[in-house]
């Protein structure tokens, strides 16, 4: 049993300590917005925030997350698709299939929180998520739109 703070709520997670956070979120907490893509922290589809940092949940066991650490998933990013990144994504129709976009949006939101006016190099460095449909140019444009650049 682990106690996790997810999207502002304390949750008791009935899973062995070695269970990756991704699967605890998806299968115990019922938050399926966070996606499985590779399981080895390569693709970023499972990106969530822990205390504001973008983290790949597929490779982080729940025992490594304390009850005081604040986990935010795509479901908790905003109540009503009102985060600036979500608004920009909507305006530019960024997603294609959309499967990678939860992780993409969480990575972008973490970037903006740290660097409100990111450069192209900042975007290249922070946005290492894989998108097979090929939305990268709209992801870049979306981050700049959200940043008011």
């Amino acid at each position: 049993m682990a106690r996790l703070n997810v999207n502002g709520r304390m949750m008791d997670i009935d899973a062995p300590p070695g269970t990756p956070l991704l699967w605890a979120l998806r299968e115990q907490a019922g938050l399926t917005g966070t996606k499985y893509g590779c399981g080895i922290a390569q693709c970023g589809a499972c990106t969530v925030h822990i205390d504001g940092e973008a983290v790949r949940a597929c490779s982080l066991p729940i025992e490594a997350v304390g009850p005081n650490q604040k986990i935010v998933t795509i479901e908790g990013l905003s109540e009503d698709v009102s985060h600036p990144i979500q608004k920009a994504w909507l305006q530019l129709d960024v997603p294609q299939c959309g499967y990678c976009q939860s992780g993409m949006i969480m990575a972008a939101a973490a970037l903006l929180a740290k660097k409100p006016k990111p450069t192209d190099a900042d975007i290249d460095e922070a946005m290492t998520n894989i998108c097979r449909c090929g939305t990268y140019n709209r992801v870049r444009a979306g981050i700049k739109l959200a940043a008011g650049l």
Partner: peptide, 8 residues
Amino acid sequence: DTVDKLNG
């Protein structure tokens, strides 16, 4: 089909 791809 965009909105639901932005909020999980």
